[in-house]
Design a protein around this nucleic acid. Structure first.
Lengths: 110, 110
DNA sequence: TACATTTATCGCAATATTGCAATATATAAA
DNA sequence: TTTATATATTGCAATATTGCGATAAATGTA
C-alpha cells in the first residue's frame, strides 16, 4: 500500500531505516557532500551545483531538515544551510553500530 | 516524477544512495538483523519472526539479493539465506567513508 | 514605492514502493 | 502419484516519491 508498517518493528529498526531512507537519494548525498566541502554554509548555490530545479532542491533540503541532519539559518535575503554536527555524529554512530552486527567467526553461509 | 535523475550524479553518489535506499526500510533492517543473529541461514522463519506476509518478505529478500548483501542457496525444499560477508564489509566501508566527510575544525555553521 | 532576488509552497504528472491475496513452481513426503 | 510444504511471481490497491512550473512570501535594492 505504499505505506510502511512501522508498528511491527522496534524503535531502533525504524530509526535506522529512517536515517538510511533519507540518505537513499543521490541528490541528498550530493547536497550533504557539498555542505561538507564548502563548510561555510551555502544555499541557492546548491541549485547551480546540482543540476536540479530550485523547488526540487528545496524539497530535498526539507527532507534533510526533517531528519535534522542539516540546519538552516535565515541570513538576510537568503538561507544559510550547514551540517548539524551533533546529529551527524549521532547518525554515524547508529549506522556504524548496525553495520557492526555482522560477527563472523567462520560464518560461511549454508 | 517518481524517477530519480541518476545521470546527473556521480557513480559514487549513486552507489551510496543505492545502498542506503535498500537499508531504508525497517523490514529489511529486521531481516538483516535476524540473519546476523541466527548466523546459520534461515528462510521462511523470517515470515514468522517478522510480522509480514510471505510475499512481502519475499519481495524484501529480492531487494536485498539485488543489492547482493545477502545470499540464498536452495536447500532441498526451502531456501537458505545468509549475509554476504564480502559485500557487507564493502558497503560498510563505503558508508563509513561517506559518513567521515564531516571534517569539523570548529565548523559552527552560519 | 517598485522591482529584483531568494526560498518555500502548491499542484500536478509520472513513476516507485509497500503490502497482500491468489497462484505458480518446485521439492519432499505419504 | 497425490498431497503437503516452501518460496517466487503476478496482479492489484493504496500510498509515497521525484521533479518541475507557477506562484507566494520575504527581504534587499534602486
Amino acid at each position: 500500500m505504499g505505506v510502511t508498517k512501522s508498528e511491527i518493528f522496534t524503535k531502533e529498526q525504524n530509526q535506522i531505516a529512517s536515517i538510511a531512507k533519507v540518505l537513499g537519494h543521490p541528490a541528498r548525498i550530493a547536497i550533504l557532500e557539498h555542505l561538507a566541502k564548502v563548510k561555510t554554509c551555502i544555499c541557492g548555490d546548491l541549485v547551480n551545483t546540482i543540476g536540479l530545479a530550485q523547488p526540487t532542491i528545496s524539497q530535498h533540503l526539507k527532507e534533510l531538515k526533517k531528519l535534522d541532519i542539516i540546519k538552516g539559518n535565515i541570513e538576510g535575503n537568503s538561507i544559510c544551510y550547514c551540517l548539524h554536527k551533533e546529529k551527524w555524529e549521532e547518525f554515524k554512530d547508529i549506522l556504524n553500530q548496525f553495520l557492526s552486527i555482522f560477527s563472523n567467526p567462520e560464518n560461511n553461509c549454508c
